[in-house]
Amino acid sequence: MMSFSSATRALISSTRHLPTLNGRQMSSMATPPPSDKKKSNIREIHSEGPKLDFAAPSPMYIPETKSVSSSIESSPMLEQFKVTAEVTVSKIFPAGFAWQSSSILADQFLGCAPDTVGFALTTGAGDALGVFAGHCAYFFAKKQVLDADGSDGKASIDMEKEIQTGVLLGSAAFFSGTAWQPLVNALQGMDLPFYQVFGGTWVGCATAFYFGLRTARTVLSGPLKHVHYPSFENSRTDKSLSLAIGGATGFFVGTDTAYLPAENFLIGAVGIHEGMSAGTGCVLAGTSTSLGFLAAQTTLNTIYPSGRLWNDGK
């Protein structure tokens, strides 16, 4: 019979040999390495690109847009040109006509030379009066002719609003009308070519009109409920209107037949020559501003995206 210590040593001895035996058993029971065929399949799976033949094409995203009507009446650009024509008739032609009339008043009746402050202020006031009177008269006549009082379900013409709009635009026209003669005098005094006088007057009077428009908004938005206070949104539209007004003032330079007539490409159309009647000269002045405004605004209507101009959504 084995002693306790002998039994213990035997047990320890058998335990020492067990890992070796188990190690051999585990090695024999491990998962065999993949066959060459399986390895080949694995390589093929990783080397091949996505099988697009069985993939459905993803739909292309097209932003939702309004359907364009075939009727030209719904065209935004048509509406722009309609408003452009209305403004030309109601404000731009009267402005040029009135400026020329007031220049005659300043020169022949008030004794103001073209290089005086009195002449500039008189013509500026005439320009402003022409815009205000032309705007109000046009919309009053339109209201009567179209019976636009809202009783037929169509948009009504609010004369209170139109009068206040006339005050706003007339105030801005005072700035550009006052600046025109001193600016032309300065540019011509530098003996610049005609096209530079033309371009400089365009930019200078456009800037003056914009400054006048922003100033008028600031002053008039308090007492006049239909005049909006200066904001980023109306700043953008005011700029585009001022740019078009600048075109009107630039073309007005063409009425001066005394300065570099050979370079004046507008002289044949709107030149006011010596010996012409005062009435003819005023009509030609209004025609020149109308042509300039139409040329400038037509370009803006064509190149600007919809919704960015002053005449969108009127």
Rank of each mutant, 00 (worst) to 15 (best):
A10M: 08
R24M: 10
P32D: 00
E44F: 07
E44N: 01
S47L: 10
K51R: 13
A55V: 15
P59E: 15
P76W: 05
F81N: 11
K91V: 08
K91I: 00
P94K: 12
P94S: 09
A98R: 02
A98I: 07
W99T: 10
Q100A: 11
I104Q: 07
F109E: 05
C112K: 11
P114L: 03
A120R: 08
L121Q: 01
D127I: 14
Y138V: 04
L146D: 14
G166A: 12
A172I: 09
G177P: 09
W180Q: 13
M190C: 10
P193E: 11
G199Q: 09
T201P: 04
A206H: 01
T207E: 08
R214D: 06
R214Q: 11
L224V: 10
H226T: 12
V227C: 00
Y229E: 12
S235H: 07
L241N: 01
L243V: 15
G246K: 00
G247S: 07
G247D: 07
T249V: 05
F251R: 05
F252T: 07
G254Q: 12
P261W: 00
A262M: 05
G275H: 06
S277E: 07
G279Y: 06
G281N: 03
L291H: 05
G292K: 09
G292I: 09
Q297G: 00
P305L: 06
L309T: 00
L309C: 02
